[in-house]
C-alpha cells in the first residue's frame, strides 16, 4: 500500500510545486506593475505573497481554487445560482441523458452494421465523418435548429452529448459483436440457430467487455459534449456556463474551479462505469 502511495504522493507534490511556481511567475508582472504605478518598492516576500492572493490572477494558486470550490459547494445552498453543485447537476443531467441516448444509438447502429453489409457500407462512412467535424462548430447549429422546431433546454444539450458519445460505442460494439470466433459461429450454425438467436446467445454476451470499455470513453465524451452544448445557449447554467461567464469577467478562479469540478465529475463517471463493468462481468462468471 505504502509502496504505491509514495509515487502517487510524489507526483501530486510535484504538480503542486510546479503550479505554485507557475502562479508566482505568471502573476508577478502585474504585481510589479501595480507597485511601479504606486511608486512603491515591493519586497520579494511581499511579491510572492501577493501573487497568490490576487482576485483575478493569470493563474490562480491551488489553495485559491480549493477555497473557491469549498465556498461554492459546501458553503452554498445547492439551489443557489452560485453553487457549483447546482451547475454540476445541470451538466450531469444532460451528460447522463446524452450518454444514454448515445449508447443506445451506438448499440443499435453496431447491430445493424454487423448484420447488414449494405448498412456497413452506407452508414459507417457517415459515422466516421461525423466525428471529424469539430463539435464546437456544430453545437451552435444543433441548438439553433432544435430551437427553431421548439426544442430547448435539456434535450438539445443531451443530443450534443449523444453526438460525441455514440461514436466510441459504435466502434467498440462492432468489434465486440464480431468478436466470436469461427468455431463459436459454426456451433450456432450446427444448431440451426437464427441470426436473432446468434445475436442474443452469442454476439451480445461476447460484446459485453467491449461495451463497457467503449462506455468509459463515451461517458467522458458525453461530459465534454454537455459542457460545449452549454456555451451557445447563452451561458444560463451548467459548468459550461460557469466557464464562459468566468472568461467574460476574467474570473480565472471561477474558471479553474469549474474545470476541476468537470474533471472530478468525469473521473467519477468513468469510475462508475468501471465499477458496473466489474459487477456485470462477475455476475456473468467471466471475471476470475
Amino acid at each position: 500500500m505504502i509502496a504505491r502511495a509514495l509515487p502517487v504522493a510524489t507526483v501530486i507534490a510535484a504538480i503542486l510545486v510546479l503550479w505554485y511556481l507557475g502562479a508566482v511567475i505568471l502573476n508577478a508582472p502585474w504585481e510589479r506593475d501595480q507597485a511601479q504605478r504606486a511608486g512603491a518598492e515591493i519586497s520579494t516576500a511581499q511579491l510572492i505573497a501577493n501573487t497568490m492572493a490576487q482576485t483575478r490572477p493569470v493563474l490562480p494558486a491551488p489553495h485559491q481554487v480549493a477555497v473557491e470550490i469549498w465556498n461554492t459547494t459546501v458553503l452554498k445552498k445547492i439551489t443557489s445560482k452560485r453553487s457549483l453543485v447546482f451547475h454540476g447537476w445541470i451538466t450531469l443531467s444532460s451528460t447522463l441523458l446524452g450518454f444514454a441516448i448515445g449508447t443506445v444509438m451506438g448499440i443499435l447502429l453496431a447491430v445493424g452494421i454487423v448484420h447488414d453489409r449494405a448498412m456497413e457500407m452506407s452508414v459507417m462512412p457517415w459515422v466516421v465523418a461525423s466525428q471529424t467535424i469539430p463539435i464546437l462548430a456544430i453545437a451552435p447549429m444543433i441548438i439553433v435548429v432544435l430551437n427553431a422546431v421548439g426544442l430547448s433546454g435539456l434535450l438539445p444539450k443531451a443530443l450534443i452529448s449523444a453526438y460525441l458519445s455514440f461514436f466510441p460505442v459504435v466502434v467498440g460494439m462492432v468489434k465486440g459483436l464480431t468478436s466470436p470466433d469461427a468455431l463459436q459461429l459454426d456451433l450456432m450454425r450446427t444448431y440451426g440457430a437464427s441470426r436473432r438467436q446468434a445475436l442474443w446467445k452469442l454476439r451480445w454476451p461476447s460484446s459485453v467487455p467491449y461495451l463497457f470499455t467503449s462506455m468509459k470513453v463515451a461517458v467522458a465524451a458525453s461530459l465534454v459534449g454537455a459542457i460545449v452544448g452549454e456555451l451557445p445557449t447563452g451561458a444560463v447554467a451548467g459548468l459550461g456556463a460557469r466557464l464562459l461567464a468566468g472568461s467574460y469577467y476574467g474570473q480565472t478562479i471561477q474558471i479553474w474551479s469549474a474545470l476541476f469540478a468537470a474533471a472530478a465529475l468525469a473521473a467519477s463517471l468513468v469510475a462508475l462505469v468501471g465499477l458496473a463493468n466489474r459487477i456485470v462481468l462477475r455476475r456473468m462468471g467471466m471475471a476470475r
Binding site: Q184, L187, T190, Y191, G192, L202, P205, M286
Partner: peptide
C-alpha cells in the same frame, strides 16, 4: 432438423455460461 451433434477440436464453451448452461445452450435454441 438437428440431425447431428458436432464436437470441435476446441471445447469452445461459452465463458459466461456455467457448465450446465453450456449444455443447455442448444436446447434453449431448439
Amino acid at each position: 432438423k438437428r440431425a447431428y451433434g458436432y464436437v470441435f477440436q476446441a471445447a469452445g464453451l461459452y465463458p459466461w455460461r456455467s457448465i450446465a448452461g453450456n449444455v443447455r445452450l442448444p436446447l434453449e435454441i431448439m
